[in-house]
Every structure is written in C-alpha cells, then in structure tokens.
Amino acid sequence: MPKSYSITLDINRYDPDTRLSWIQTYQVEASGILRFVDVLRRINDEQDPTLAWSSSCEHAQCGSCGIILNGKPLLSCELLVKDAVGQFNTHRFKLRPLTIAPVLRDLVVDLEKAYDRVHKTKPYLIKPVPYQPEGDEYRISPKTLEIYSEATRCINCFCCATACISGYHHFLGPNVTLANMVRLMDPRERAKKERTDILYREDGVYRCHTSKACSFVCPKDIDVSHFLALGKEGRF
C-alpha cells in the first residue's frame, strides 16, 4: 500500500456574510498519492462542508485552483501530498487564497475580476494578415512557432502574478504581458504598434525587475521572465 501521511492544514477562512476572517486548522490522514484538491474534498466530505475552494479540470489545464501553500503560489490539483511533504519538508501546511483578486469565501478568489486585465491586453489578433491567395492557412515554419509556442501554453492561473515582486497595483502582471508577447511574436499579427503601446505603457513591461519569481513558480514551466526580457529588449 502507498504510504499514508498525517498532515495538518492551517487554512485562511473568510465568511462574506459576517466579513470575519480566521485561521482554521484541520488534521487529515491522507494517502501520499492524493492531490491537494482531493484533500480539500476529503475535508468537505468528512469534517466541514462549508470550507470553500475552487477547481475545475483537476489536471493542471484550466488554472482555476491556484492557492498559496507555505508561501508558494501553485495549483492545488497537481500537488500530491507526498511531493508536498518532500518539497516543503514538513507535515504542516498553510493554505491561503491568491492575492490578486478579492476573496469570495475561504480559498476562492474572484478570478473573474482578475481576467479584466487579461482582456486589456487583447489576446486575439487585433489586425490579422490578409488571407492566403489560395484561401488556406497562413504558413508558419515550425522554427518560427517554436520561438513563442511555450508562451502559448499559459493557462492564466495567476500564480506568477501572485509571486511577482513588482506587485499587482502598478503592473499589469507577468501573464498578461506574456499574452501580449505571444501576439507580438505571432507573424500573423499586424497591429504591432498598438501592441508595443500596450507593452510599454505606464503599467507595462518596464515594471518588471527580472527577478524571475514568475518563471520559478509557473506550474506549466514556462520561462515567463525570458519572454518579458525579450519584450524589454524589443526582440519580437
């Protein structure tokens, strides 16, 4: 049988009706191969149905389940208990909601609001190149695609934005800037001027101090700061 662990979770709670916040401690006996979303579900099932948290795909593809665990923003659906114990070298975990949007209840933050910023960067092709004369797809060589395809893997989980040392008030944030970089590097986008205006605006890429915290926490292993550095250098 796989190893079982006795873990202690200190979870930040918030009740929107009374506006009270507190920290609640739960003891859980969990098999090492459970994910943190499974552990939270277990708490709902066995101890406390009121503890709110969020998830959707539960396999690291949608970015709905970010939390801060012992100081590190991560996806609760992909962290296994045994890996957490190994990685953080403890059996006690502090779980807090992400800091980039208002808390709705407990671990659930209003990511819908956080998305307003993603919308600002216009993730679509503002002005696409004209149709191919043959009417089929625009040609892009695998070499060109490879330069930016890593950046297209971003799932907007906002872990990087939570970790970013430049803060969230004066900076659009790493993921939002990354989305702009994708289109700047995309040969099908013609509105480069509008894009560079967004990139270099007051709360744009120059707010980044290249600390690389974003790359360090990104659950999709995207080297976010690399793309931001390209942005600063105007290499796209």
Binding site: L125, P128, G135, D136, E137, S141, P142, L145, D186
Partner: peptide, 20 residues
C-alpha cells in the same frame, strides 16, 4: 473551420512546409 481557427489566431502545430 480549421482555416477559420487558424485565421483567428490558433497556434496549430506545423509541418516543415509551414502547413497545419
């Protein structure tokens, strides 16, 4: 529709000739 998606910014994988 594949071409529509490509024209609207989808990042399809490509062949050596740059086609989908």
């Amino acid at each position: 529709e594949v071409v529509w998606l490509e024209r609207h910014g989808m990042h399809f994988s490509r062949t050596e000739e740059g086609r989908i």
